[in-house]
Design a protein around this nucleic acid. Structure first.
Lengths: 330, 330
DNA sequence: CTGTTAGCGCATTCAG
DNA sequence: CTGAATGCGCTAACAG
């Protein structure tokens, strides 16, 4: 069903139908009514591709997420989608996969769809290949990275000070007389490296020698990964007094391991996660966590993208501040 | 940058450029090379809207999710997207919101984008309004509902026997000498009503009188909701011996409430959730849960949609069987 | 092997 | 107030 089909049956020209569809003024009430009836009768819906082609605009925003199973990313996407949908844009969410190749590939796919704005979810998009792909395929379109940044004229970033947040976590444990503190990374991402850096800085600030920096990496970013890694820490350092994890989920695995090994949490061993996620609330004892302000991050990102969509595209960098939520595990 | 721009600079016709782009045979190697160089030089990418318009095909599949924050739905979407992307389709995921109006609205949006297939995630899409909207806007396109079904010629459904699964949960508690069993609903959805039905049937099967059917509804589908509802149950029925919840998350809230009230789980009070989610593994004691076969459900849905995309569209109905994962809470 | 032509469905001139 | 003509970027049929 096209406007021509409608036009023919209504005995008018296609342009008249188009005008009715778009609520343009200057149509006789009777004609309008007649066309509208036909529109309804045939459940006519305009073809977005054709319309986008002639209007030179798609009203499409792409949201790229490395792994849509990751709760804190979909939570964020949810907020952003709500915000942008309210403002008349159509959001399409896509899971890219972790490979750099794929992330770059999806940026090209977004160009093919001629999106007018892009949200990149997470620091995992801070790579050279992604940067190159944006420069190549979307040099004029506003792009906002949630918890990341790339130095390009059309790319903005909203980041959170996870490094200094981590320092505060070290401070917190230190204030509870925990001195032997390990750090566990769940995966390789710029955000996680920043956290690790914050841990190291915090430890050094308190005068800890280099060999007191116990750095661990979990095999996988899962409950089991956190469990296994914590077991390893306890085996290698039975005198450990505190462990900071790069995300809540593996921290919860750590809580389980500590309990299975008979360590009292928090008296004997203080545990901290990151994200202020539901996992920390489910856990028993409830997990102390670094709130990295996901909600505010998303709202800011949506706001900045909105500015870019409406006005002139420019690069912007914004920082938010994390905050410790102290619960029962410290 | 269009094929005309490329054609002009290459000194050939646009159709030649098109042929090169689409790897059609019958182009002199030299011409092909010359065009390809220009294509690369300008980072040319075809406009999907224009191509879709002339080819009468979008290679687009829409995945509708009521709330993209719900883990078991995004997990499912992840699997489906992976499957369909592998097969050359571009998946766009959208969060519709819970209102019936919105769900129907998004179906229209999918028609505008001329998608070639649709996945509806969850039984929440089993409503008259959605059915009407499909009939109106997508009567020819293959639609697959994950854990649901609508009686329309182009709609298929993969469902799981959550009702009989629930009966088994009752059996399990009964076998542990729990007789006073309550049931908690986390939200209104056909899937949840089926679960409730299964609970009722199970209780009756064991000869429980009607007034032994303790039906509860949580204010909200959250940890807190499960906690509060469980508190209410304990207050109203201090002699309760078992509680079955429609999803893991609120069951975990129940575990917390039971512990806070000094009930021994599982000795005194047996608790069961549904979904076999990570929440149940985090929880202490670990939650017994009804595995509703999310993974298989998703794979089947992707498979059925694939058949519809490639062959003739028809309606199909498929049933999978749930299975109890017994852990520490029963 | 390549160019010309037409048309996908729509919005927007410009006439009338 | 309405119609005819044009073009958005692309592919395909038909010539040559």
């Amino acid at each position: 069903m096209t406007i021509y089909d409608i036009a023919r049956e209504a005995g008018v020209a296609a342009s008249t139908v188009s005008r009715v569809i778009n609520n343009k003024p200057g149509i006789k009430a009777e004609t309008r009514r007649k066309v509208q009836n036909l529109l309804k009768k045939y459940n006519y819906t305009p073809n977005a591709a054709a319309r986008g082609l002639v209007m030179q605009s798609s009203r499409l925003v792409g949201i790229l997420i490395v792994d849509i199973r990751v709760t804190h990313h979909t939570n964020s996407a949810f907020l952003i989608e709500k915000e942008l949908t309210k403002r008349g844009y159509c959001c399409i969410i896509m899971g890219t996969g972790a490979e750099d190749e794929q992330k770059a590939r999806y940026i090209e796919i977004l160009e093919q769809r001629r999106v007018e704005g892009v949200i990149l979810m997470g620091s995992m998009f801070m790579t050279e290949k992604v940067k190159e792909s944006i420069k190549r395929h979307l040099p004029e379109v506003p792009v906002v990275i949630v918890n990341g940044y790339l130095d390009l004229p059309n790319v903005s970033g909203v980041i959170v000070d996870e490094d200094s947040g981590m320092e505060q976590c070290v401070d917190l444990l230190w204030s509870k007389n925990k001195r032997k503190i390990a750090f566990v990374l769940d995966s390789s991402s710029p955000s996680n490296y920043k956290k690790r850096q914050g841990y190291c800085d915090g430890m050094r600030k308190h005068g800890a020698p280099e060999d007191a920096l116990w750095l661990y990496e979990s095999e996988e970013s899962s409950l089991q990964g956190g469990y296994d890694t914590t077991m390893r820490i306890i085996r290698e350092h039975p005198d450990v007094e505190g462990i900071i994890y790069s995300i809540d989920l593996i921290a919860v695995g750590g809580v389980h391991a500590a309990q299975d090994m008979g360590y009292q949490v928090p008296e004997q061993l203080g545990l901290i996660g990151v994200n202020n996620s539901i996992y920390g609330e489910i856990c028993k004892p409830k997990l102390t966590t670094l709130d990295n302000k996901l909600h505010e991050l998303s709202e800011s990102a949506a706001g900045i993208l909105w500015e870019g969509l409406e006005g002139t595209v420019k690069s912007k960098k914004m920082m938010l501040f994390s905050k410790i939520i102290e619960r029962e595990s410290t």
